[in-house]
Write a protein that binds this DNA or RNA. Structure first.
Lengths: 211, 211, 211, 211
DNA sequence: ACAAGCGGGACTACCCGTTGTT
DNA sequence: AACAACGGGTAGTCCCGCTTGT
């Protein structure tokens, strides 16, 4: 095999992803990506047929990493406890831990970025985003169903909605975090989501949960 | 009396706002705005010094309308009840009512749209957005403080966080709603937020709240 | 009415047409056209949506002028004589006169130029070219039919073929003329075509006809 | 023995020639040629120093084949008869036979293709084309001179012109054939050329000649 | 107030050719 | 001999905003 361009390709995608989160897709120029990588037009269009092709590759990779994160989180939670409800709460707790590591207030979610420029993309990309959110609904929903079976919630709950709320909080916290320049937004909002879950499932809330 | 350009100006802003919510600001061209209005360059640059000037005018108008909405909501809630906690819950409830009227799944918030292209804008615009969210934190926070004074919450609560969560839920619901093409997302997520508030403030949750 | 761009548009088309006949359509760059006119990209793309749009406008104008030429020629011939055969021969003779005025050996026919790059164009343009040649077949054919009715040819003749041969000779003479750098090619080949017609229609050939 | 690149070289030239006849030289990209052959850049630039080098090689090969065709035709005609005039007519007749075999209406002559993009090429290539047409003028002219010596034409004839007319008809018929999508154009126009020759040399025209 | 022509620059896409590698 | 990665430049397109005119 001749020279390996895998790394170059990844470098382009990394740089582009950062820029997209700050300028949007349309606001991110190929030249800006290249300036960030030190490459030239020739290299870029060797790896990607078009800028939109790059956009596709980036959102796809993002979705795959998102799935990988979800898988890792649930597996860790499963190893930490066998109680169904605790697995759910720990999953959210682990996300809080991760969120606490974030220091860049410009951090955000590519799904949301693309969603606010949705008309720029084709249905293929819309599908990737929809499926991405759907998987969380499914997996988190499964954990909720298991918890419900083990110990029914105080009030009847629409599991899909409640599962979606995790992503709702994440996405909303990103927007507010960016707007306030506050990198602690996500972790703190996730703690409220966890507190809500504890209340829904009648766990005695810990003092730390909401304050 | 010469021709009144106010209407033309508003028409430009309306068309542009719709396009921005679907293509982002960078993805919205002046020509596209003009095509949507039937006007020409001459008219556009008569009303706006530049595209960025338009972007500024639109976000400013959006912020003003947002303030107006907040004021209207709280005033209506204040008229409906004198109980501090109920005022808070009714405010959210009124928002749910409004959200239920929405049928366009592409609906979204300009603040979020701009936030995901933040590097395109100057600090003036960043300030408008920050102030916009801040006002809600303030006003909703005030209602929470009043409610707390009247009947302390079950657990200690960071009022700012809890107030922010309203916008977090709104913004997150817009993102998920756009992604799923589901215009009911916002209303249903707001109901969860209200249910959470009720639990935090030890109100006996209603069955309808979470399911 | 604001400023009139008609002349600018024509200037672009004139320059482009000259370049196309020497470099082909693909070999003619927009920049080269602009350099020849002193205009800028902005002006160009104000008048033409794309380079292909320019190509369309040019071939259409060429076809219209070609029709106009055909009409002028036949009308002049009709005024010069009432004998059907003479009208035909005079039409060709007038073309010879015109051909003798040509001094630029790079002169050529846009139809042929486009035909040798046909895959670059859409069916709309193919149709313009086909119709262009077809009209000559029709009109010259009509003259031949009139001549035949008046005085039958020595041998049975396929009128369409014989009419097409006029354009065949013109097109072929352009190619040879360009290749040899010989601007007299067209006139001399047309004379042979006329000589052929005279023989077909049993006119005693003039000494000048083929020598 | 290492791998034989002769075949690869020919494959590139074949593919390129087809593309050039449909898109012109400028409109034919190296990438398109490679896509048509399944090869890559490395292979291409191993065989050709540049795209222009390919253009040169193709026109040269075309000219050689053209010469070869002329030689074959005249030799066959010489074998078929010893009458000078018949040799001329048979040569054209053999061309008609060949033309009847053509079914691709996109068939054309590289000389003409290059002639309509002449400014793209250097004098070396112009010379190849000029020499190509000149050889026909020479050889066909020689046959005409021999025929004239044997039996003077009815009218004085410029032999060079009359010889050129063969190529004029061929080139013109290609242009019309492409434009009409009519692969029978060439054979039928050649028949008219032959009929003209017969009339010029006072042969009693056959009924089939012109109808 | 609005219309159209136009300038000038930025951006995407492509294209030719080179280099390293097998 | 052929392949993939890459460089560097250019072509076509678009886009913002200015100017001229009604």
């Amino acid at each position: 095999m001749p020279r390996d361009g895998t790394e170059t390709r990844a470098q382009i995608m990394d740089t582009a992803q950062q820029l997209i989160l700050q300028h949007g897709f349309a606001g991110t120029t190929v030249d800006a990506v290249l300036e960030g990588t030190g490459l030239t037009k020739g290299a870029f269009f060797h790896h990607f047929r078009s800028k939109n092709d790059l956009g596709h590759a980036i959102i796809q990779r993002f979705a795959e990493r998102d799935q990988e994160l979800l898988r890792t989180l649930t597996e860790r939670a499963e190893r930490l406890t066998s109680d169904p409800l605790q697995r759910l709460l720990i999953t959210v707790g682990l996300m809080e831990e991760m969120a606490e590591q974030l220091t860049d207030p410009n951090h955000g979610c590519l799904f949301a970025s693309y969603a606010y420029e949705s008309q720029l993309f084709d249905d293929d990309i819309h599908g990737i985003i929809r499926d991405g959110f759907h998987l969380w609904r499914q997996k988190i929903g499964d954990m909720m169903r298991a918890a419900s079976a083990h110990r029914p919630p105080r009030v009847p709950v629409d599991v899909d909605e409640l599962a979606d709320m995790l992503n709702v909080v994440v996405e909303g916290a990103y927007v507010l975090g960016k707007s306030f320049g506050d990198s602690t937004m996500l972790a703190r909002q996730l703690r409220h989501y966890r507190a809500y879950l504890e209340m829904v499932f009648a766990v005695e809330p810990r003092a730390s949960a909401a304050g």
